[in-house]
Amino acid sequence: MDTNISLPPGSAPPSFQDLILRLHAYWSAQGCLILQPYDVEMGAGTFHPATTLRALGRRPWAAAYVQPCRRPSDGRYAENPNRLQHYYQYQVIVKPSPADAQALLLDSYRALGLDPLRHDFRFVEDDWESPTLGAWGLGWEVWCDGMEVGQFTYFQQVGGIAVDLPSFEMTYGLERLAMYVQDVENVFDLDFNGRGVSYGDVFRRAEVEYSGHNFEHADTAMLTRHFEDSERECAALLGHGLALPAYDHCIKSSHLFNLLDARGVISVTERAAYIGRVRALAKGCCESWLAGERD
């Protein structure tokens, strides 16, 4: 098999799950806690409280985890080789940002078999911003041979609050990275386990069904109600100083908004208003979390 990485003779490129295991091993060796995915639907690994909330305050923090991400409007009924409404991010956060962050990152690619002397690695300007989280940072897309294989950000603000200690955040899009190292052109053809199970075997049906749900069948009246419930509950819990449960409802409201958006029921002007409402929740959660940290 012709692959894009340097392999010892006779060995196969890492499977999808191998890739995760190698990243776990690598970042664990760098001193990161290996956490598990958060159990609330979210659009990006950044929403995990291990990133959003832990990026705040003066307490050092280093963690790595896989996070399933849902982008309802990216669903393509499993017909597009590159787009999924559910996919995985590998997320690393280190606070404060280490002096050798770029080198650490490049070593992680070496650990996956991507040799910078055979590939063209670049750091291409990409200012990251999440309007719903009231967060922004500066950094780059990491390119390997013209392909984005990760996003690297130095956090500057989260929940509208300037961070005390800037974190280094790295996000790998696992499917895309796996497609590259396995030299596969269709995500559903990815080798999942090295023993004959493909990504499509695991997820094709889910992509088809969730695309139908996201675009055609999700009950928008119910979603609107749930959004309002989550918003109310978040505010109520913040009133009791319960930052973490409140934040769950903030994430939920963000996902509900994404679903409503995919259903096409949010107009352009409403869109900005919805984002503003979620941002207000995120801000409240971040402030509440920070207050608890400082006690």
Partner: peptide
């Protein structure tokens, strides 16, 4: 296109990678 490295395989991997990315872009 322009790479930033003199690759050990004369750029074969880099060219193949960039061609691949462009296929995905054009598919989009």
């Amino acid at each position: 296109f322009v790479a930033n490295v003199v690759a050990t395989d004369d750029g074969r991997t880099i060219i193949a990678g960039n061609e691949r990315v462009l296929r995905a872009r054009f598919a989009d």
